[in-house]
Design a protein around this nucleic acid. Sequence first.
DNA 1: TTCAATATGTCGTTTATCCAACACATTGAA
DNA 2: TTCAATGTGTTGGATAAACGACATATTGAA
Lengths: 187, 187
Amino acid sequence: MTQSKTDPRVLRTRRLIMDSFIELSSKKEFKDITIKDITTEAMINRATFYYHFEDIYDLLEKALSEVLLVNLNEEVYKTDPINEEVFIRIFTAITNFQKSLSNRCHRGYEDTIARIIREQLEVIFYKMLVKQTTSEDKEAPKINAVILSWGIYGASVEWKRNGMTIQPEDFIKPSIPYLLSGIDLVL
Amino acid sequence: MTQSKTDPRVLRTRRLIMDSFIELSSKKEFKDITIKDITTEAMINRATFYYHFEDIYDLLEKALSEVLLVNLNEEVYKTDPINEEVFIRIFTAITNFQKSLSNRCHRGYEDTIARIIREQLEVIFYKMLVKQTTSEDKEAPKINAVILSWGIYGASVEWKRNGMTIQPEDFIKPSIPYLLSGIDLVL
DNA sequence: TTCAATATGTCGTTTATCCAACACATTGAA
DNA sequence: TTCAATGTGTTGGATAAACGACATATTGAA
């Protein structure tokens, strides 16, 4: 849109940092990862880290949202209207993510991570809702996005509590008619 | 020694360029590779290329010498005196390299590449000879290094001409006593 | 050959990264 | 507690990389 090409150095550096962070996350817990660890692994200067990120939570946030976006296959959710397939795709992305998190034991940071996931979902749902709404009212989509994000995320927590054994698709399917009917109403 | 640490940006950029060049070399012939190809693949600016290399032949030279050095396992050839194992190791490195070249069909550039390999060999032999000589005379080791580099390289050409089927080790072994006896004389 | 397209090599300016140094916070062992 | 070690976040000056523009050379098809 308004972006007039990002400096390739920026892209390169962000990639180095993100990849190093993800790499480190698979080796130790989040609370034990220092900025120095990340910048050493990425072979960039520590000051450069702060040029791109507020702090380590900012990095976590952006790394998570990127992983989510990749899982969600950006093009699809941007072009399609909200339908059954979109819900399944999003829910599956989140459960995949939950699974990968439970392997990497980010103990004590579930709340932070949960908040970030919900915020990302909210952004995604809001964009989709606004795109297919005819009304000028921007408040209703906003609140509906909040409700959807909490609802879907809650479902994924429940899926996790049930042992992560059921196929995500089968788990969410029964609720989809309800979710969709609500959306039809607000249009 | 005198090097007070190279800027990490330099190391990074050189690595990107070299890797892209090697990657491209496996896809098309040397003569068809442009600077633009390399810098595009490496995602660096074309001007940056010229900051590090004279031209594409300079890159070829440095890339080849690096590949050779890696194959030769730097530490070993620096610490050990010249003996049977060193000769075998060097010869094997060159034949490996010859094999990889013949796959990548650098037609029409064999002479350039041959020259570069010989020059690199010469440097390596010279260093080893000087280290183990007692005399102050630096001319004899220089000429002997030339002779060794041409000799060893020639042997690899012959090995190639014979179909590259014989084990490099077995191919060079018969000549090692002769090569070593000469070295003993000049010490 | 001719001419347009593409490649090479250079330059000046702008911007991202490096680095060393700093004050301050957190941690953990004595 | 105390104190040394380690981590966090910031700053200013130095330098590598990006970018656009340029002149020139090479290529390849009409």
